[in-house]
Design a protein around this nucleic acid. Sequence first.
DNA 1: CGGTAATCTAGAACAAGTTTCAGAACTGCT
DNA 2: AGCAGTTCTGAAACTTGTTCTAGATTACCG
Lengths: 216, 216
Amino acid sequence: MTTESKAARPALPASPPLTERQEARRRRILHTSAKLASRGGFDAVQMREVAESSGVALGTLYRYFPSKVHLLVATMQDQLQHMHETLRKRPPSEQDPGARVAQTLMRAFRALQREPHLADAMVRALTFADRSVSPEVDTVSRLTTAIILDAMRLDGPPTPEQLSAVRVIEHTWHSALITWLSGRASIAQVKIDIETVCRLIDVTSPGAGSEAGVGA
Amino acid sequence: MTTESKAARPALPASPPLTERQEARRRRILHTSAKLASRGGFDAVQMREVAESSGVALGTLYRYFPSKVHLLVATMQDQLQHMHETLRKRPPSEQDPGARVAQTLMRAFRALQREPHLADAMVRALTFADRSVSPEVDTVSRLTTAIILDAMRLDGPPTPEQLSAVRVIEHTWHSALITWLSGRASIAQVKIDIETVCRLIDVTSPGAGSEAGVGA
DNA sequence: CGGTAATCTAGAACAAGTTTCAGAACTGCT
DNA sequence: AGCAGTTCTGAAACTTGTTCTAGATTACCG
């Protein structure tokens, strides 16, 4: 726990560029993970079962993904990538950037709704992740940011204020998802909260809004 | 996991009003929990050690707190209560309600900074909690809401819009805390995000702001 | 005080995440 | 093909959360 002494980390597309069979194994594992998660959420993703069902030894599973949380965060990366592409194909139709972001996030939300157990497993892993998973969680965060920025469809590069607004939207997105998944908020409430936070985009838009109290 | 068949739940101040010794036990447990959490975060709170160090059998610990997450969420309730009282004593000095909330939350944040491991344990438990902990998590949420509403110092009752803004602020607060705890954001960044989201309060204030795009 | 039910204790037992290890299989290289 | 190093397998072991059980204590009530 104190030192990271592992030499190679095939899970990261870093140093050694994975042979074909390794890539196949990795995909099989991720697929199994998503399947089990869809069935019963976080608890249903049991490392022994993932290993067996992927036709891989337990030790190998742990070589590819050093912990259950790593595995599920990687699964989320995978799913988010799909979602990003899907969302790209049907860009939001609204006028204001804020409304576009809200529309996009609600689409994503409805997609997650279709597999609530999977969503549960992924989001719980994401927020439970400790420092050792930071790089992977960061990747997920960047993906989410990309989705939001895509929806904003800005002309130029985002201002620092807009970036902060995007971060706040991400925070709200994750946390609202959690409260919905744990049954403490309705979908209607999530929708309201998303729409509320998305106002920040229009408020912080240079030129738009009223420039009221911008100097925090 | 599927059914709750336990007859009595002394952990809840509900039906049987706990004898003095039971109250003492409960406090000892919560104290131990906070102590261990302060030392090494979520992982350092080990049920056997909590039990032993509180002078209580493992089975008793589980009777008071049906899981580690329950225990840590209860610990958070406890700490939040303290914090609420402390914050009450030194009300925020800013002019705008939004600025007051931001100031208050940053105070709370700095308090948590003093025991980062404890904060880690509590927040991780909070976001990891599943449906079986919903009532307790809800209590924490209500406490947080109370703190924020206190800071707003409204004249009348909050509008639905303001309540939504408060929920969004809570979302941001929790999630920003997590990103800071897992080392993915600096304190400065947290501060910026908190201040950014707190603008929502002034934006949604009836009468204040510019009434721009209020009709969502 | 005596009896009865609830609570508490000590400890074993179980479940699932994680680690470890010896040997088999595979890879790349000559 | 033959060899060296890595990767993969299979299985056991270890850790920690959780459950279970039998007996001791305690609380309540007449």
